Structure formats: structure tokens, C-alpha cells
Simulated assay, not measured.
Amino acid sequence: MYTNILTSQRNGVTTITINRPSKLNALNKETIQELHAAFRVADLDADTKVIIITGSGEKAFVAGADISEFANFSIAEGGKLAAKGQELLFDFVANLSTPVIAAVNGFALGGGLELAMAAHFRVASDTAKMGLPEVSLGVIPGYGGTQRLPQLVGKGRAMEMIMTAGMIDANQAMQYGLVNHVTTLEELIPLAEKIASRIMRNSSVAIGAAIAAVNASYEDGVNGFDVEIEQFGNCFGTEDFKEGTTAFLEKRKADFPGK
């Protein structure tokens, strides 16, 4: 079905693996299209409660964008590349109602780190290295990196990482708040699955509402508190709310229908 990615679904988790190990899983146009399609399918699948995105092999999550594809682009073509990429993949992932965990298993550079940052949160192997090296190529991050990195690590640290084009290791990324957990490469996917299983105990409808409310605070001209109030109110009309509150009052475990 796909040329550059693999997908599998098990126990409510869809795992999407970027599978271009010979290119260190670099993002080319075709891979971005395939990722969009795979995320869309997983988000629409009622049996998928959590999505994990990772890279194949031990070396790289995604080592960047495929520079050979755009080295000769004009100003207009460059702008279109960034706009299309953000719309198709990076903003699309960030705004999915299904939780997305990035399992960073090696180099996450440039577009790779931007993809990891578009996920709702990140776990990393102790071999992971992260950075935005774009200025060393005479360009800047174009897939949301200049916006999401400061949101996650603060303006000063983001400025230093972007200006130096340097890499940080997994432990420094955790200290910065860029990743939530660091573990061994062998334990990376099991850890992501363990967190996913904890997420799945809860209402998928409420989680989707929470994602929308949290994201709203980062949107220009949008009052996040107003979105929270609206989403909170909407929850009262769901079957999950009825089940959750009934289960609580009956002192039993909730069995959420996801509606």
C-alpha cells in the first residue's frame, strides 16, 4: 500500500513507521503524502485510540527533509513547499483528535524534529539526537520549527538551537522539556505503548476535546479559555460523559463507548 512507510494496528494502537533507512528516513514529497494518508486513516479508524510515529532502524527517527528535492527551488516554490507541508502533515498531525506519540529512536533533525514536535508529546531513546540545522544550509525551519520549538523549550533555548544549528542529546532534550521520557532503544516502543494503554482507559471524546482546547492557546487571535469552556460544555452531551460519571457514582470502572 505504501512505498516509504509501514503501518500496523494492535490493541487500539496504530504504529506508523517511516521506512527509508538507506536515506535515514528523510522526508521527501512522497513520504509526506503517505504519512498524511496513514494519519488520516488511523484518525478515522474507530479501533485506533492512540497513534505512535517512529522511524525504522536504529539510526534515525527522521534525519531531515530530502534536500535534493528542493535545492533548486525559487522563492515562490520554497514558500509553497513550506505551506503545503505544514497543511498536509505538520499542522494536520498537531490538530488530530487522536493522540499522537512520537517515539524518537535516533536522529530527529530539521523536518524530523518538526514532525516529532507536531506530535502531542515525545518519548526518546537514549541514542536520540535532536536539532534544527537549517541555517547551516542557508534556510530556516519551514515546517513549524520556529514556532513549536520555542513553545516547548522557551525562546532563549530555541534561538540558540536554531542559530547554532547544533544538536542536543536525549537527556538534554528531556531537561529542556522537549521530550517527556528517555529510555533504551529496546524499551522505546514498549514505553510508548505503555503510555498509550494508560491514555486508552479514558474517554477518547474527552481527549479529543482536550487536544483542541490545549492547541487553542497557541492560535493567534483565539482565546483558549473560551475554547475550553465550549469544549467542556460539549462533553456534557456525550455518551462518554454519562458513562464516566455513572461509573464514578457506582464505584466501578468506566467502559467508554467513545461517543
Rank of each mutant, 00 (worst) to 15 (best):
V123A: 09
P190I: 14
T146W: 00
V50K: 01
K129E: 12
P141H: 10
T183E: 09
L113V: 07
D169E: 08
A216Q: 12
G166N: 11
V41P: 00
T238D: 02
F121G: 10
V205T: 15
L149F: 12
M1K: 15
L96T: 11
I162V: 14
G156L: 10
F92E: 15
L188R: 07
A38E: 00
E77W: 05
M161A: 11
D126R: 04
T245R: 02
V179Q: 01
G79M: 15
I53G: 00
G142D: 05
V100M: 06
G258L: 05
G78T: 12
Q9L: 11
I53W: 01
L188V: 03
K80R: 14
S74F: 04
I67N: 10
G154P: 05
F225C: 09
A71N: 08
T17R: 10
Q86I: 09
E30H: 10
S68N: 07
L6V: 03
A247P: 08
T146D: 11
G138P: 08
L249H: 08
E228Q: 12
V100Q: 05
E58S: 13
R122N: 15
N25G: 09
A212K: 15
Q151A: 15
L113E: 09
I195G: 07
N25C: 12
V227D: 06
N11P: 01
G145P: 02
I211M: 03
I162T: 04
L88H: 12
G156Y: 02
A38I: 03
S97L: 00
A63M: 13
V93F: 03
I52A: 02
A209S: 12
I199H: 01
F61I: 04
A83N: 15
L89K: 02
N234A: 14
I75L: 14
L89D: 03
E228W: 10
V123C: 08
